[in-house]
């Protein structure tokens, strides 16, 4: 008896948002009606037909900046997530498959890293290494790697005891071949789910760092910077400068988290 395969609406929404964010990360700059880094009109203009989301305190077009920001936010988060996933999966595979002193050390280092509040640690590291995009990517990747190490390791530890591993050994694979050809492939599912969720976290962290002034520098179009620059003026009723990038962050983070959850649900079936 086949159950009707319905597409999970959560997955659909998530994928649409992810696709949109990636599209903007590549083409956002060219789609923007104005140059996002040059003043284009009066300061602090409310939304109008010319400036859909209004202009900010420096006369920059908010709509253009919202469209251009994914080039920074999404690019940083996606790159950092992929780097940490690759690194974490590799280390997790090794630590899980070859238990021993290395495995212990890796796990204790992960414990230490994960026991710090992510945001504070990120601020410290970015301040130490210097505020630019490449450093931000490395800091984020460094912070998210332990998550992937842990996920992969725990999956590897259970997969390792399955009979197919024993059979692979009896067939004549070396331990390295068993780990990479057999165990790795069967241990990837949790990391794939986590990848999507991590991109969401990464966007939050990137914009959060910029908001407190520890991320990329203004006037780079970036959602956190935009919220920060508009924040003092909200009490003057200039809501548009902060609200629109805020909505953009929410939608994007929701999209990545939703996709992650939907994939997890699908994988568990």
């Amino acid at each position: 008896m086949m159950r009707k395969r319905k597409i999970d609406p959560l997955l659909l929404i998530g994928l649409i948002i992810i696709a949109g964010s990636l599209f903007l990360a590549i083409f956002g700059n060219s789609l923007a009606p104005y140059d996002p880094q040059e003043p284009v009109g009066d300061f602090s203009m409310p939304p109008s037909a010319d400036h859909w989301f209004g202009t900010d305190g420096s006369g920059l077009d908010v709509f253009s900046r919202v469209l251009a920001a994914p080039r920074v936010d999404v690019a940083i988060a996606v790159t950092a997530a992929i780097v940490s996933a690759v690194l974490g999966t590799g280390v997790g595979l090794y630590a899980g498959y070859f238990t021993g002193r290395f495995s212990e050390i890796v796990m204790r280092v992960s414990d230490i890293l994960q026991s710090f509040p992510v945001f504070i640690l990120a601020m410290v590291l970015v301040t130490l290494t210097g505020r630019n995009v490449v450093n931000l990517i490395f800091v984020l990747a460094f912070l998210y790697t332990p998550i992937f190490v842990r996920l992969t390791r725990s999956e590897v530890v259970t997969q390792r005891t399955r009979t197919y591993v024993e059979a692979a050994r009896a067939t004549g694979n070396s331990e390295f071949q068993i780990a990479t050809r057999h165990v790795l492939r069967n241990s990837l599912a949790p990391s794939l789910v986590q990848l999507s969720v991590t991109v969401g976290f990464g966007i939050l962290l990137t914009s959060g760092l910029s908001f407190v002034g520890a991320g990329v520098r203004p006037p780079t179009p970036e959602w956190g910077i935009m919220i920060a620059s508009g924040a003092p003026n909200i009490i003057l009723n200039e809501w548009w400068t902060s609200i629109f990038p805020g909505i953009a962050i929410s939608i994007t983070v929701f999209g990545y988290a939703a996709a992650g959850n939907a994939i997890e649900r699908w994988a568990r079936k």
């Binding site: 009979t163 197919y164 024993e166 492939r185």
Partner: peptide, 11 residues
């Protein structure tokens, strides 16, 4: 080995 399914890499 004894367990037919578990002896084969499921992927």
């Amino acid at each position: 080995f004894q367990d037919p399914f578990d002896s084969l890499n499921p992927r």
